[in-house]
Design a protein around this nucleic acid. Sequence first.
DNA 1: TTCCCCGGTTGATCTGCATCAAGGCAGATC
DNA 2: GATCTGCCTTGATGCAGATCAACCGGGGAA
Lengths: 250, 250
Amino acid sequence: MAIHQDSHLVPHDCVDCPIRHRAVCALCESDELSKLEQIKYYRSYQAGQTIIWSGDRMDFVASVVTGIATLTQTMEDGRRQMVGLLLPSDFVGRPGRSTAAYDVTATTDLVMCCFRKKPFEELMSATPHIAQRLLEMTLDELDAAREWMLLLGRKTAREKIASLLAIIARRDASLKSPRSNKGSVIFDLPLTREEMADYLGLTLETVSRQMSALKKDGVIELEGKRHVIVPSINSLMEETGDDTDGGFLV
Amino acid sequence: MAIHQDSHLVPHDCVDCPIRHRAVCALCESDELSKLEQIKYYRSYQAGQTIIWSGDRMDFVASVVTGIATLTQTMEDGRRQMVGLLLPSDFVGRPGRSTAAYDVTATTDLVMCCFRKKPFEELMSATPHIAQRLLEMTLDELDAAREWMLLLGRKTAREKIASLLAIIARRDASLKSPRSNKGSVIFDLPLTREEMADYLGLTLETVSRQMSALKKDGVIELEGKRHVIVPSINSLMEETGDDTDGGFLV
DNA sequence: TTCCCCGGTTGATCTGCATCAAGGCAGATC
DNA sequence: GATCTGCCTTGATGCAGATCAACCGGGGAA
């Protein structure tokens, strides 16, 4: 049980055993582990490679081991909206549906741990833990999507940028060692300006301008284009428009 | 099994027995039905009444029997974004979380069928069908949320309005008897202009203007402010910006 | 070295939607 | 019937962010 807790809190510690990922870590406690081992396989992708096109047949579910992938929707005239950002330990795929609803793209080099859908579904029926764990994860994703909807519908460009930086900082921090002290955070942006724009419902020019503005105002510092230093998380949070309490340190 | 299928396709036929709702209809096949019967209770709310405030303790899960409820998020300065629209048979609540993340409001008179959370969770552990069914429903909601994100991030005001009308027309049609012929659809808007604005990330003035524009262009007809006649679903769909194929008639 | 290409920045201008403001209409209350 | 109130419409104006365009700088290839 302690192991399970650990793997939940520190998923990067078990990249060599993706089965213990958040995705299916309930299994760590079950004797079905060996069965799951039998149906898993790995795939790796290069940065920029499209993993699945919307509408494609998709006969597996998977968990991200290392790297970053995105889910995007595209309109006929080319307008794009990112609708999901998959970091290590995130799950992708839909038991019970055979075609993909979104384009899935590797934005960095990526390793995924896949399970063929059919046997995975069978295992899911046989192992109630898995469905419950997946339900929990899906509900978390739904919460994230709804937060994202507030961002897209009501926030200003500056608030959107600040929110995205805060999200990345938080997720990044949770992958890393003990919290850096004094409320300052350093990380590398895993997204291009254009990808940030697709995330935020903006244009890349607006993203660039607002990044410059936040820099000018001392909310962030930039080394090169990707390396971000946040001197004070609190100042950044104030820019997001979110409730400040109950936020970052949870 | 036939009963289960029917209740899935025609949820309004079993409003007197919400247990057969989509929400938990997997139970129709199980012998746990009587147990579920024991822990359910009904609550009704008046139009405009707030059911739960964000952050409140929420010790039940529920299924909408009749009426419409909304989930909204509010920023400190009052900006509001609707993040969920609950129609009959929709499920609300989160096994495994004790406080509500959003304001839940009845926009019409509303009846909900509730289950106290604790016993519901116990039943869920004992009855794998339920978790799987909830997982399916949650995944559907996640898909809807992502569609909604595309709308919020990338669509024009006119496309947003057309999309909302199409969504309501579709959901309304699925509750009603055989499909009206010739591609024309008639329904009553269940939302005020302001609620539509909160759904779409617009202001109520813009909603009003775009409704007028769609009317002037013959895409819709209005009788009063709420009664909508769509002479041609296809013309409406063309205004949404969505892929036209694989849409309305599925 | 030179060139090119890609990702990023910055400037000038345009425009779609927000904002501010003034009614209109229908149903409720007295 | 008079008034009020909630919901909606329409007009005038302003502005945030989109669009169009020029340019920068670093890294890889020839």
